[in-house]
Design a protein around this nucleic acid. Structure first.
Length: 438
RNA sequence: CGGGGCGUGGCGCAGCCCGGUAGCGCAUUAGACUGGGGGUCUAAGGGUCGCAGGUUCGAAUCCUGUCGCCCCGACCA
């Protein structure tokens, strides 16, 4: 994409509304614009990042055995009356009336709808287990939205729902998501630590929040220092319940808790290995048994002919929040530093001298070759001074910058800069293409 | 929902107390010079001062109401 034709409004100064670094950088780098409290428009560059994150989440869900569908944002109130949550949910639910005065709502979550959909079509225990998910916009009318997309009222969430014949089966589904989440965050360059969370009325140990460490996070967290060097499980057989359980058990063996779930004896045990930080919640998984299936009359026929009520769980990842979380975890004074996996473009190509025909021709040619090689490239072909272009590229944080200037072209070289390290090398055009294409 | 703050060109701000020509920096446009880390000069465009009432000869400024946004706290992917 040529920057001269792009819609990429960058700001030199941060709007005063933005308080935390990710919000400031998202506004300055032209990723989003606020349109109302807690509601954001995603500009072209921000949308590309959102899509990248979404795709990673999707791939890892599929790998774990979940199946994608898409449910609407607007839901009927009647559905929520079945579970009793229409009255229970409170003012965070945005309630709407249609022209026939029917009660509708903008979905804050989808347990009722997925239970209803599954109920219509699942007849037998052979239809279990299943994990269904979608990636859809949610609306929660937060009392106080803040921190940009980190706590918006409208947000993009991946929510998955599992259906199993019994609790043991549900635990396997839960573990699929648990392990999948570790891999998902790792692919985005994040280390998210699973922490024991409140399970509500069901009890047990099957609820975890996934927390990314960041000084601007909203929760205080405590963890064993082993988490500082933990690695994602990587390729695993998700159908192997025992292997998954071993991974999960291994993970939770190292202490990690938010301040409301602190376990002082375990902290004492960790001793000098205990670490404290702030954290951002980027995911939350629950097992909730028959909480929705029972009141909503979801039943399937068991192998012995009797009816059974499936055990359910739900599993959320805040996709739009992750954009902010990644920036919180990866930036410097000059701007954002995108991990390669979620960068809006892999390469920022800078033509130092748009007025120099030789230089411009070399840059145009390199741009064409990068495109031919399938490298996602943002080409700064504007007639600006080098300094302004460098500043823009550093701000928007593309992993690689290739600088084409008259001096280098005379020698047959371009400059390649790696954004995270700032390391710059001169090399031939061919080598530069090979390097960024690998 | 309790407490606090702010609404003045696209962004950052001054002016308000003490009523009288709307101003500064950045950005934008045009031209020239310049050209490897946010250039210089010259010229230009752009604002019903959130909105509605009121007081006054006169309101960005004073009064009343209202809307919006932000921050702190309790709640949350």
């Amino acid at each position: 994409m040529r920057l001269s034709r792009h819609f990429l409004p960058v700001l030199k100064e941060s709007p005063t509304d933005a308080q935390i670094v990710s919000h400031k950088l998202m506004l300055r780098a032209g990723l989003v614009r606020q349109t109302a409290a807690g509601i954001y428009a995603w500009l072209p560059l921000g949308l590309r990042v959102l899509r990248k994150i979404e795709q990673i989440v999707r791939e890892e869900q599929d790998r774990a055995g979940a199946i994608e569908l898409l449910m609407p944002t607007l839901q009927s109130a009647d559905l929520w009356r079945e579970s009793g949550r229409y009255d229970a949910y409170g003012p965070e639910m945005l309630r709407i009336k249609d022209r026939h005065d029917r009660d509708m709502l903008y979905g804050p979550t989808n347990e009722e709808m997925i239970t209803s959909l599954f109920r219509e079509s699942a007849r037998s225990y052979r239809d279990l287990p299943r994990i269904l998910y979608h990636i859809q916009w949610k609306f929660r009318d937060e009392v106080r939205p803040r921190f940009g997309v980190m706590r918006g009222r409208e947000f993009l969430m991946k929510d998955a729902y599992s259906f199993d014949v019994d609790e043991a089966g549900a635990r396997h589904s839960y573990n699929r998501m648990f392990v999948s989440y570790l891999n998902t965050y790792a692919r985005m360059g994040l280390r998210a630590i699973p922490m024991q969370a409140d399970t509500g009325p069901i009890g047990g140990d099957l609820s975890h929040e996934f927390i990314v460490l960041a000084p601007t996070g909203e929760s205080d967290v405590f963890y064993h220092r082993n988490w500082e060097t933990s690695v994602a499980p990587g390729a695993v057989d998700f159908d192997d319940a025992e292997a998954l359980q071993a991974i999960v058990s291994g993970a939770v063996a190292d202490y990690a808790a938010t301040d409301e779930k602190r376990d002082l004896p375990r902290e004492a045990e960790a001793g000098a290995d205990l670490r404290q930080s702030r954290g951002i919640e980027v995911g939350h998984i629950f097992y909730f048994g028959e909480k929705y299936s029972k009141p909503m009359g979801l039943e399937v026929q068991g192998p012995d002919g009797t009816k059974l009520t499936p055990h359910m769980g739900s599993y959320g990842i805040g996709v739009s929040r992750l954009v902010g979380a990644i920036i919180e975890a990866s930036h410097d004074e000059a701007g954002i530093i995108w991990p390669d996996s979620v960068a809006p473009y892999a390469v920022g190509l800078i033509n130092m001298r748009a007025d120099d025909a030789t230089c411009a021709a070399a840059a145009d040619d390199l741009y064409a070759r990068l495109q031919a090689a399938g490298v996602e490239t943002l080409y700064d072909d504007r007639d600006e001074r080098g300094g302004a272009k460098f500043a823009t590229m550093d701000l928007i944080g593309l992993p690689w910058q290739i600088v084409v200037g008259p001096k280098g072209i005379a020698k047959g070289v371009v400059e390649l800069k790696r954004r995270p390290t700032g390391e710059k090398i001169e090399l031939s055009i061919e080598d530069a293409i090979a390097k960024v294409a690998s």
